[in-house]
Simulated scan of single mutants.
Amino acid sequence: MLRHNRTSLAVCAVGIPVAVVLAGCGGGLSADSVAKIDGKDITKAQYEKSFKYATYKANTAQVLAGKNPKMIVPDSPTFKNCIAQLKAQTPKPPKGQPAPSDAQFKANCKNGYDQIKQMAIFDPLLTEVLRKEAEDNDIKISQAELDKGWANYLAQPTAIGGKQNLAKFTKLTGLGVDVLKQDQRNQLILQKLQAKITKEKGKVTDKDVQAYYNKNKAQFTQPETRGLHVVLTKTEAKAKAAKAELDKGAKFATVAKKYSVDQVTRNAGGKLSGVAKGQQERGLETAAFGAKKDELVGPVKTESGWYIVRVDNITPAKVTPFDKVKDLLKQQVTAQKQQTAFTDWQKQIIKDWQGKTECRKGYVAQFCKGYKEPKQPTTAAGAAGGGQQAPATPAG
């Protein structure tokens, strides 16, 4: 089943051989280019290679698990093979439910193709953006870091799933390990950029933490609770009779057993502990929180019936002091500020590079001038298989 991903700064794109016809020369692009970023051409050959890798990733690394791995290839424009492969992989629907139609399978294949195509142009653009951003921010990746990162990368189930799968990967896609190593290098660069951005712009002061605490004080407040004894009856007359016996000194447990229709409190001798506002019926809550300690009130009418209520104890609301939560809050506020800083940086980077990147019509991705967010996949496409997401603004 094809997997559809959101393109982002944190994700590198994917693919497999495809015949692509690029008609016309838009703007300042040469005939052999699909895009130009900061004066550097992204050639058709680069795009073809990226498309192969994008198709591999859309199929997920699990495709290498079998002895004879095969990928679902969205063969535009008919998608004949893709439809056949999806049909073969789709389980039979439960009895009484229709199987997906060819139109639904085709919609899935078309959606997958469109996203793979977009990722295929996004990936080489991303590589150039990260290379230049690393250069401008004096970020370097040592050979030792590359070696360690490569070992970790090979072990990731979502990447390649082990060194033993490298030969299968090459046979399946026709690609060498260079595309995997570039993917891994991009991740390392992005990690260092994120660390630098969050360190510079994610600093938090005690004043920031105090402001967060003051704004969200309800989160650190334990509400007032009341311990009650109650009797619930179906009629007002029964409630009055119960209260009359209690007024004469009868034990609450005896009266609850005799009159209450609520099994839980009846079995507990009428006891209802730890009641906070918002937990009980409005009438019962109003009576309970309007009464004084040891006061017997009722009958109180509610949707459930008629209550007699006695307040046994009152535990006042308690606010956890700032000093008790300061350290934990600082970690939380810092994490939020760092995430916001990195997200803002990503948005600005995309905006900046859109002014330096020209893409051929039909081959427009996030960094391209004139890029627009794609529409979400249709219900029909989703019905044909797999959770699908359209590319969108990068997320850290």
Results as ranks from 00 to 15, higher is better:
Gln156Gly: 09
Ile189Leu: 11
Gln156Ala: 14
Lys70Phe: 04
Gln348Asn: 13
Ile121His: 00
Thr334Gly: 01
Ala287Phe: 07
Thr55His: 05
Lys238Gly: 11
Leu22Tyr: 06
Tyr113Ile: 07
Val177Ala: 12
Phe79Asp: 03
Leu272Ala: 08
Pro394Thr: 03
Lys57Asp: 08
Ile197Glu: 14
Asp123Glu: 12
Val63Phe: 10
Glu245Thr: 09
Gly396Tyr: 05
Trp353Glu: 01
Gln210Arg: 13
Lys258Gly: 00
Lys168Thr: 06
Gln366Leu: 13
Gln143Thr: 09
Trp345Asn: 00
Tyr212Ile: 03
Asp41Glu: 14
Val21Phe: 10
Val63Ala: 15
Val129His: 01
Ala288Arg: 09
Gly202Val: 10
Gln376Ser: 15
Thr158Asn: 13
Gly385Ser: 05
Gly24Ile: 00
Pro321Phe: 00
Thr170Met: 02
Lys318Ser: 07
Thr205Ile: 04
Ile308Asp: 08
Ala211Pro: 06
Gly283Pro: 08
Lys318Gly: 01
Gly362Gln: 05
Phe367Glu: 00
Trp306Pro: 02
Gln376Thr: 14
Ala35Val: 03
Cys82Glu: 04
Phe51Glu: 01
Val18Trp: 07
Lys369Met: 05
Ile72Trp: 05
Gln366His: 07
Gly161Arg: 06
Gly26Asp: 15
Leu29Phe: 08
Ala384Leu: 05
Val319Trp: 01
Thr334Cys: 01
Gly39Phe: 02
Asp178Lys: 11
Gln164Tyr: 01
Ala211Val: 04
Phe289Ile: 12
Asp294Gly: 02
Gly112Asn: 14
Tyr212Gln: 04
Ala218Trp: 03
Gln115Val: 15
Thr158Phe: 09
Asn165Phe: 04
Gln118Cys: 10
Gly28Arg: 14
Pro377Ile: 06
Lys347Ile: 07
Gly298His: 08
Lys215Ile: 04
Ile350Phe: 09
Gln62Arg: 15
Ala155Tyr: 11
Ser304His: 12
Lys257Asn: 09
Phe289Trp: 10
Lys44Gly: 10
Ala239Thr: 04
Gly161Ser: 07
Cys368Gly: 01
Glu373Trp: 02
Ser50Val: 01
Asp138Gly: 09
Gly24Ala: 01
Leu228Asp: 01
Ala317Tyr: 03
Cys12Asp: 11
Ala218Gly: 11
